[in-house]
Design a protein around this nucleic acid. Structure first.
Lengths: 146, 146
DNA sequence: CTAGGTGCAAAAGGTTTGCGGTTAA
DNA sequence: TTAACCGCAAACCTTTTGCACCTAG
């Protein structure tokens, strides 16, 4: 809530890497639009609206770079194409198996920092990844009225 | 613990599908050996010891079938090759970023049935997938003595 | 000016599929 | 006997890479 939005890229936020038009466009797609966790191909389609000359390989490169510098997060669901999101707060993902939609689920504060599960002694924990699957409210409503 | 092992395949445990030699071999590899969450290629290598004529495509098909009937679980970590495990109890996975090893983490009973996180009202939850990443005790010990 | 980034096309890696021959029930 | 399954090879999809050209700093 009290976070600084600052959804703007700069050479410093990129860790000294170049602020190119392509990187800006890719980042804008992620923060400006529906924030629906698009895949690389979807980012590519939307990016072409802003910059018709951009290539898919560059979109992949930019997404990789932005992930590396911590500006965005890569979200992997099973073997499907990776999706990308600009929400840097610790959060889980809910995946609707009907509409393929993905939404962020805010984690309770006590689950952000450490694992609520018993890890072997001496384990160094870096990251917890939580994905939930099911049917979203909209799809449930739709399936009932058929 | 108090579970029924019965790590044997039958036509009924396959939901009426055929009990073929290939399916048995693939399943045996998963339950007999190190239980180290092998990939399809690794299952293929080990399966060839028991049945030299088996093909990789068949291993993929068998793993798919066994997953479908609920005899094994597919474990996906990022974009790497899928791994497979015969542990049907609800559990999380810990992935060591040093040695690529994967171990099962038993979930606390209160986290097995429902999400400890707030989902939108009307959401039907089917499955929670928890993956932790970090460095396992062994790899931490090894990296200290260099 | 020049190291780093882009665009293209080709390749890689994992997985799936079509098809003719084989086999469990 | 015969529908289901296997083995092979080719296709598929997502992602990565090599290389010549381009551009931000």
């Amino acid at each position: 809530m009290g976070e600084t939005p600052k959804h703007t890229l700069s050479s410093e936020s990129l860790g000294g890497l170049r602020l190119t038009k392509q990187r800006q466009v890719v980042y804008e797609v992620l923060v400006d639009e529906k924030r629906d966790h698009p895949t690389a191909s979807e980012v590519f389609e939307r990016a072409k609206d802003k910059m018709p000359s951009i290539s898919l390989a560059t979109v992949y490169n930019c997404l990789e770079t932005l992930t590396q510098v911590g500006a965005i997060k890569q979200v992997n669901l099973d073997r499907e194409a990776s999706r990308y999101c600009p929400n840097l707060n610790p959060h889980a993902h809910f995946y609707c198996t009907e509409c393929d939609g993905v939404v962020d689920i805010q984690l309770a504060p006590e689950h952000c920092a450490e694992s609520p599960w018993a890890l072997p002694a001496g384990t160094q924990l870096k990251e917890i990844d939580v994905t939930m699957k099911g049917v979203c409210p909209d799809c449930q409503a739709n399936s009932k009225q058929n």
